[in-house]
Design a protein around this nucleic acid. Sequence first.
DNA 1: TTGAATGCAAAAAATTTGCATATTG
DNA 2: CAATATGCAAATTTTTTGCATTCAA
Lengths: 139, 139
Amino acid sequence: MSDLGTRLRAAGRRLTPQRQQVLDAVERLGHATPEQIVDAVSAQADAPMALSTVYRSLEALQELGLVTHTHVDHRVPSYHLTTHATHIHVVCRECGSVDEAPVEVAQEFVARLDGSLGFQADVTHAAIHGLCRTCRKQS
Amino acid sequence: MSDLGTRLRAAGRRLTPQRQQVLDAVERLGHATPEQIVDAVSAQADAPMALSTVYRSLEALQELGLVTHTHVDHRVPSYHLTTHATHIHVVCRECGSVDEAPVEVAQEFVARLDGSLGFQADVTHAAIHGLCRTCRKQS
DNA sequence: TTGAATGCAAAAAATTTGCATATTG
DNA sequence: CAATATGCAAATTTTTTGCATTCAA
């Protein structure tokens, strides 16, 4: 994987300290909302970063395929590295709890999507909604 | 499955024409944003429905487990019947195209989530992000 | 009749945009 | 130097909330 600067330039874009900081923050935080990112970056950097810059940076990083986002919370998107492929999020629609499952659980699912649609799925960190063990028993 | 009124009352809530209309609209439209629902309902009913009523109705219907939502478009949630289990949505993060896959594709995935976490997943209409066949080749 | 729901308007939250200025390549 | 990106503030868009009124049970 080439570095951020190279990738950005290849896409006709530029490497700025802000973009690097946003990428670093996403990596460091694991998952983060734009709000959390701006807070994290502003805490480290000398000057606070504009929230609009975070949005625009995330857009650029997403275009490069370096980050993606998911909707764990129904309102705010949560960003994470595309390569940070460690688990899948399952969200209970009853109690709102968030649990994690290893990627292997979806291996066959991904393979089938590939086979039938030619779609390269990024289920990693995808938010799967449903009922958790506990809430399920109660209904 | 008991009817809407019974279910609502069992939850200490009430059956109102608005809630029935919202449920009907979701069923008729398949998927719909709050905005689309208010439009659809207002077109049929004599008086236009308040958008806040749509939000509150959807909340109630979700609590009953009758509807769920997904994020096909990253901004606005799209609602659909929980029972309307026909397909899974795959969304390309590159071109934004939306494709569908039959539920069977996820059967094993769902079974495994159940087995490992006891989680009852509703992958139906879940939005899976990734790269479509076309965009995949270009990158 | 009484608690729950609606409608409206106002507030809050989240995201986007315009534009002058600064910065990258 | 030219094109791209930032920062700020204003504008949009989306969702929530307060409250008086209406309505379901």
